[in-house]
Amino acid sequence: MAALEINNVCKDFGSEQVLKDVSLAIDSGEFLILVGPSGCGKSTLMNAIAGLEPVTSGEIRIAGESVTWQTPAERDIAMVFQSYALYPSMTVRQNISFGLEMRKVPKAEREAAVERVADLLQIGHLLERKPSQLSGGQRQRVAMGRALAREPKVYLFDEPLSNLDAKLRVDMRTEIKKLHQRLGTTIVYVTHDQIEAMTLADCIAVMRDGRILQLGSPDEVYNDPVDLFVAGFMGSPSMNFISATLVGGSGAYRLRVETPGEETLELPWPQERETPALGEKVGERVILGLRPEHFTEDDARLGEYAEGVALTPRITVVEPTGADILLQLKLGDGEATARVGPKCRVKAGERLTLRIDMGRAVMFDRETEKRLA
């Protein structure tokens, strides 16, 4: 039985439709992340699951039971808000136990629950402090502790790390990952940060304009995007989109890439990646999608055994990041980003021989922006 099912949910605010026929299902213990740009409807969907926003049509089921018209208190969910929503006049201990007290849980059980989550989140030394005496990361742990003190059917996290600085976000992300692995709880998590989505999720729903464009594992949405938007949204740096002409025929398709002032490049399309749709696009302009890591430095020691198609572009910008180096190069009618190792010594204005791994490339229709192959 699915822990959460959303069936054909729509939500209107006046004449504006914010959620458009949204459907998904996750199993017990899964970590689902709703990701997308601001205004795509992910927080509205979260509020609909929580019961904070009534849906216009459709059904929401939790653990097999329809909760579409139930109040938040009746749904057996726990929510962690972006703003933490802690009671400023209460101590950490009181904040964590308050929800249990409202549910008339016996005092001994409340105290045991507080001690359990305090130990789990390593906030035992903060129990007698008030929120104003805590750092942002400590407040976030308390907000999580308040949710974890209960054992609901589903936990909802609404952009819980967006108010934290960059380093603290990484630390808290790791803590949330460990927490989920330890407890095996069902979590629905909203974020606009695609790195957060890739590192935390079992399943990612990529949203745009109130619709779910793709629902799948992090590997699926990253390596097999359904369209141009998903491909460009997931990944940092984002995927390179290169204008090309599809030539040839079955078993010998090639992508011709013309770069002003450079030699025309013909990239062979892998035969095992062919689809029937390609036959209709021969002679037409398409979009080639290459991730920065699909480029690698050519190694002379490998000789004829080196994988990929070689090219020697002029490098326009060199961006060291520590762990690797990002190179900007002219390719097609725009620029592309390549990710190479930290020992690369190329300078801006110089040429560097790179190889493109076409076995991992993707191709999109120029007009519809849908995946072709």
Rank of each mutant, 00 (worst) to 15 (best):
V92H: 09
I96T: 11
E111F: 08
N95H: 10
V114C: 11
Q94M: 03
L120Y: 00
K107Q: 11
R110K: 07
R103P: 02
R116I: 09
N95Q: 11
I96G: 09
A112V: 03
R93S: 05
R110A: 04
G124W: 03
E109R: 12
P106R: 12
E111P: 13
N95Y: 14
R93I: 01
G99L: 05
E115R: 13
V92A: 08
E115D: 15
L121T: 05
R116H: 12
I123C: 04
K107N: 00
L100T: 03
Q94L: 00
M102S: 10
V92E: 10
R93W: 09
K104I: 04
L121F: 09
V92F: 12
S97E: 09
R110G: 01
V92W: 15
R110V: 03
G124R: 11
E115K: 15
R93Y: 10
A113R: 13
M102G: 08
A112F: 03
V117F: 13
V117P: 11
G124V: 01
E109N: 08
G124M: 07
V105I: 10
A108M: 05
D119K: 15
I96D: 10
R103L: 04
G99M: 01
V92R: 07
M102F: 02
L100R: 03
V114T: 12
D119V: 11
A118C: 03
Q94A: 10
V92Y: 10
L100I: 01
F98V: 03
E101S: 07
I123E: 05
S97H: 01
R110Y: 01
A118P: 00
Q94W: 00
A118G: 08
D119G: 15
